[in-house]
């Protein structure tokens, strides 16, 4: 796929922004990932991307818009990239997801139907931002879209799985949060002791799998003892 030529503009004296006008899509994401790789190698600078923007962070060589445009001509989207599908175990409700029942009631769904709708999709990881290891996921079922809570909670437990607006996500650390909490995963999303603190990459996918409290506790122990292995399929 060839995306349109982005608008290139400085972000003050600390960065350069590339902005695409397209609607976010998996194709655009794959192209942006390829651009990110190419530019970070060619310009030796840190690159951050979101839905339709890519930021080159200084310190980097002083590079002009026309030089960037020239570099964009040599971007190649690899069609053979092996992406990963992670299965994330989640214990829904039962004291781990305090908003689940109220939310199901609001959507006129049984708790079982609600969980089925949340575990059905393969969610696309667009990028990591907000907090260390927080995944921006796409693919939430329309019926589950819910505005954020009017008053955020001061403390959301790490591993909480939540819905806010048309997003679903997992809190990688304990933090304040305004999303509706529907469950919790026992796995660690971000661990600085690992070579790669986050195993997830933009372009990978995840799906949620409902587990019992017993399984939750079993996996939690494996995580604590450093013997948990992610359930990953390459596609």
């Amino acid at each position: 796929m060839t995306a349109s030529v982005p608008k290139i503009r400085p972000l003050g004296d600390t960065g350069t922004l590339l902005q695409w006008e397209e609607t976010p899509s998996e194709q655009l994401l794959h192209y942006m990932i390829a651009v990110k790789k190419h530019l970070s190698e060619q310009l030796q600078c840190e690159v951050v991307h979101t839905y339709t923007e890519l930021l080159l962070k200084k310190p980097s060589p002083t590079v002009t818009a026309s030089e960037i445009k020239k570099l964009l001509e040599t971007v190649e989207v690899e069609t053979t990239v092996r992406r990963k599908l992670f299965t994330i175990p989640v214990c829904y409700g039962r004291g781990y997801g305090e908003d689940l029942e109220a939310l199901a009631l609001m959507k006129q769904l049984s708790v079982k139907e609600f969980i089925a709708m949340h575990t059905a999709p393969e969610y696309l990881i667009y990028f990591i931002g907000f907090l260390p290891g927080f995944l921006y996921l796409d693919g939430l079922h329309e019926r589950l879209v819910t505005p954020r809570k009017a008053t955020p909670r001061l403390k959301v437990t790490s591993g909480s799985v939540a819905i806010g607006g048309n997003h679903t996500g997992i809190y990688p650390q304990e933090s304040p949060g305004g999303w509706h909490i529907i469950g919790r995963t026992p796995i660690d999303l971000f661990d600085v002791r690992r070579q790669e603190p986050s195993p997830f990459k933009a372009g990978d996918k995840i799906r949620f799998e409902a587990i019992s409290i017993t399984t939750f506790q079993k996996i939690k122990r494996q995580v604590e003892n450093g013997i948990y292995n992610y359930n990953v399929k390459v596609f």
């Binding site: 972000l11 600390t14 923007e53 931002g129």
Partner: peptide, 9 residues
């Protein structure tokens, strides 16, 4: 739409 920010934004 959620976009990149930097210190100074």
């Amino acid at each position: 739409r959620t976009s990149p920010v930097l210190p100074g934004t």
